[in-house]
């Protein structure tokens, strides 16, 4: 009997779609699947909240989108990169098209504000002249123009998150992924950060925010994808979602 190689079905991606997940499952060695049959399509320029309680699969989804994890089954395409097949050497190139903001900021603590932001430009080998021009510009955009020399440890939580956003934006990413960006911030700072993200989105960048902060989600009136036990339980269009809490 001749052996026929099973060909993987090519994922259909619309022209304006930047993220496509098709029936994605992710299981860890122990326990129930973290994601189970997740299908999701996000268009260029959208602002999407991904919400869910702990253990809902939010973090796994972010890790899959960053290509930190590979799905057990299903297909993921982000900005034209097939993340199930991408070579290790191509991952940096892919990640440079994303901007990433974490709950714990993930800044380099022993460098100052300028160095933290400039670092992202050095990685993509921008000339020094350009870095000197771009960093102050982006810092003033996030409201930190006067603090470029400050040590990270001396900044407030809100300021640190602004540095992280500046770092994420400086290479003009197509998508900004924010994992619980207000998780460590007080309500005032949270609002300011969300306003900043909204402004970024208005500039044309696709913004995806993972959060469990229902109040912010309600106020922003954006598209909301809700996860529970690894399954999408609702996907509400802009303004349709109302938090029951």
């Amino acid at each position: 009997m001749p052996i026929t190689k099973k060909k993987k079905k090519k994922l259909a991606i619309g022209d304006d779609e930047v993220i496509v997940l098709d029936n994605v499952c992710k299981s860890y060695e122990t326990g129930a699947p973290a994601l189970n049959g997740v299908s999701l399509r996000i268009k260029r320029g959208e602002f999407v909240f991904i919400i869910g309680g702990s253990g809902s699969g939010k973090s796994t989804l972010i890790k899959l989108l960053l290509r930190e994890l590979i799905p057990t089954s299903g297909a993921i395409n982000v900005l034209g990169y097939d993340l199930t097949r991408i070579r290790h050497g191509k991952i940096p190139q892919f990640r440079r098209k994303l901007g990433i903001v974490f709950q714990d900021f993930r800044l380099l603590p022993d460098r100052n504000v300028y160095e933290n932001v400039a670092f992202a430009q050095r990685i993509v080998q921008r000339p020094r002249r350009e870095i000197r021009k771009n960093v102050p510009a982006i810092l003033s955009q996030v409201g930190l123009a006067g603090k470029y020399k400050s040590k990270i440890k001396r900044l407030s939580g809100g300021e640190q998150q602004r540095v992280a956003i500046a770092r994420a934006l400086i290479n003009r990413p197509d998508i900004l992924l924010a994992d619980e960006p207000t998780g460590n911030l007080d309500p005032k700072n949270s609002e300011e950060i969300m306003a900043l993200l909204e402004k970024v989105n208005e500039g044309g960048t696709t913004v995806i925010v993972v959060t469990h902060n229902g109040e912010i989600v309600n106020k922003m009136k954006k598209r909301v994808v809700a996860l529970n036990k690894g399954v999408i339980i609702s996907d509400e269009e802009e303004g349709e979602y109302v938090n029951a809490d």
């Binding site: 960053l66 050497g89 940096p92 190139q93 892919f94 990640r95 440079r96 994303l98 990433i100 993930r106 800044l107 380099l108 670092f119 992202a120 990685i123 993509v124 770092r167 290479n171």
Partner: peptide
């Protein structure tokens, strides 16, 4: 550990 992770998330190559 943390430092290398941050660099990798931002898109640094292994060499860099």
């Amino acid at each position: 550990k943390d430092e290398i992770e941050i660099m990798k998330y931002i898109g640094a190559t292994d060499f860099f």
